[in-house]
Write a protein that binds this DNA or RNA. Structure first.
Lengths: 177, 177
DNA sequence: TAAACCATGTAACATGTTACATGATTTT
DNA sequence: AAAATCATGTAACATGTTACATGGTTTA
């Protein structure tokens, strides 16, 4: 039950159309919650039916025409409720770790190459995050909003750092075989 | 498409019934791939229909009777194929980070308490992993299988360590407000 | 005017979650 | 004999993925 709340958050930050939301889910929001345009359109329909958002009056509603949405008071209330409600951490579920476990049974052929490929990808993502940090969070930006957004970005940075280090170590250990 | 391969791996390690698998998914395997008994029974049915596993002949097949499964050659071949095939890293999708982002919009009330609760849970999980490491991976266990399994456990340890540190820092920054 | 792109969607399916159902075995 | 536990499932629904459909606008 997180996608609707991701959309509500995004729409509160700035009223948008489905495609604009899709683009934002490819960039900033997508760094910790990804979604495709199909998911977004489906969810926008539900949120509108439930009275949490509404179409901004202005455009003629027709296929191929842009439709912008904004959050209604009920939507904001639901987001406040969800944000404050306790939630247990999700158990880890990672295909790469599963593949290593299965490699222990059927052999490592092929996995080792993919570890190296992942290492490249994670290094690239880490660099992207570090650039964003440098650009968007200079020391003087220190309001509560800044600190929260910076904490989220730092989670991304630290997670990518974990992957880079873990992959480096794991690759070098498999090479020693 | 990972659950069937998680089950194949588990069954290769040791032929089991649905409930036994469920228990193993609550412990060792569940540390990086969780699944409920409903998922497992549904998937066992599919794997059997597809000819990747079969019921061990011995028990009468009846409701309430234990059914043990073993992996067929076709199943092993599919697992080998899947293990070697490249797969992109899954994009991050974490509800807690999303909640921090929404807290930046609607206010932090409630989230802070839950951060503290998560910190306790992650510390506990980290301790569990460290105990397992001490017990199951003494320095002399150093075969390829050991090194692979140890690498997986170390990913768990490093990830929990990340959460503990990140939560400590984030909590203390929010308190400084 | 054809191709590329913008924008919104449908359909089918795979996966994951929650609640409930049912028979067999063990314990009190 | 009742209660607890073992063991296997069904049903309904929510969420996520992949492939395709369709109309409008811009650009070569």
């Amino acid at each position: 039950m997180s996608l609707p709340h991701a959309i509500l958050t995004a729409l509160l930050e700035k009223p948008s159309s489905g495609l604009e939301l899709t683009r934002r889910f490819d960039r900033s929001i997508g760094y910790f919650w990804s979604a495709t345009h199909q998911q977004i359109y489906r969810e926008l329909g539900k949120l509108e039916r439930d009275g949490l958002i509404r179409e901004l009056p202005s455009q003629a509603p027709a296929r191929g025409q842009k439709k912008e949405y904004e959050v209604l008071p009920q939507g904001r209330a639901e987001l406040v409720r969800w944000t404050a409600a306790p939630q247990d951490p999700k158990p880890l579920r990672d295909p790469l770790l599963l593949r290593l476990r299965s490699a222990a049974v059927v052999g490592v052929t092929g996995v080792d190459d993919d570890l190296r490929r992942h290492l490249v990808l994670h290094r690239r993502q880490l660099d992207r995050y570090l650039e964003i940090e440098e650009k968007d969070f200079p020391p003087e930006k220190n309001s509560e909003v800044d600190r929260l957004q910076h904490a989220v970005l730092r989670a991304g940075i630290d997670l990518e750092t974990f992957w880079v280090r873990w992959l480096e170590r794991t690759i070098s250990e498999l090479d020693d075989a």
